[in-house]
């Protein structure tokens, strides 16, 4: 465990850098944070990262900012949360302030469009990569329950277009009931 000030600095610069690259929507923050805080620093594990993702989605505000606040709080308390919210908000604040002056020149530039389309393909690959890793983790548990929730939630969001908040609420409820049924089952057997 590093000194508190050192940890806060690491948190700030990590979220600042991550936030500067969340092209293609808030969820890109998950693979980027996973790389930094789970793989490189080892401050969180995969399960916690998923918990934080679900909580970030359940609160008002952008997922990227909420996830940053959660990681900050989990690793360094309220000071950590303050530092990470600053790190998450500054890059878009700076970029937008500059862009609001240059906008007309950039909008018509075809190279910008080419680069953005290329980056979208890269972002899609980064997201697919993390999904493959996370699904592998779930499959390793060799239990039908999480796989069923995964498939059901995906279809509910993607095909049936059910509100994500509702999907999360139902999945949490099913999780609680399944856990209760399992412990009750053990109780009966004993």
């Amino acid at each position: 465990m590093s000194r508190p000030a050192g940890r806060l600095l690491t948190l700030f610069f990590s979220t600042f850098k991550i936030s500067a690259f969340t092209f293609g929507g808030g969820f890109v923050i998950v693979p980027l944070m996973r790389k930094r805080f789970v793989e490189e620093l080892g401050w969180l594990d995969d399960q916690e990262m998923l918990d934080l993702t679900a909580i970030a989605q359940s609160a008002p505000g952008p997922i990227a900012v909420n996830a940053s606040i959660l990681v900050g709080y989990r690793t360094a308390g309220v000071p950590g949360a303050l530092v990470t919210v600053l790190g998450a908000v500054l890059p878009p604040l700076i970029i937008l302030t500059i862009l609001s002056f240059l906008y007309d020149r950039i909008r018509e530039n075809r190279f910008v469009d080419m680069a953005l389309t290329g980056m979208m393909a890269g972002v899609a690959a980064v997201l697919c990569d993390v999904v493959i890793s996370l699904v592998q983790n779930i499959a390793k548990q060799r239990r039908w329950f999480p796989l069923l929730i995964l498939t059901g939630a995906f279809l509910a969001i993607r095909v049936l277009h059910i509100n994500i908040m509702l999907v999360l609420a139902v999945c949490g409820l099913i999780g609680a009931l399944e856990a209760r049924a399992r412990t009750a089952g053990k109780g009966d057997a004993a």
Binding site: G24, G25, G26, F27, V28, V30, Q47, L50, D51, T53, A54, Q57, M120, V123, A124, L127, C128, V130, V131, L134, V135, I138, F145, P146, L147, I149, L150, T151, A153, F154, A156, I157, R158, I164, V167, L168, C171, G172, L173, I174, G175, A176, L177, E178, A179, R180
Partner: peptide
């Protein structure tokens, strides 16, 4: 128990975002 239900749902959310992008 609640978290065990939320984790696969969080993976599904990320997968859905991947399909959109």
């Amino acid at each position: 128990g609640v978290l065990a239900g939320l984790r696969p749902a969080a993976v599904a959310m990320i997968a859905s975002a991947a399909v959109t992008v």
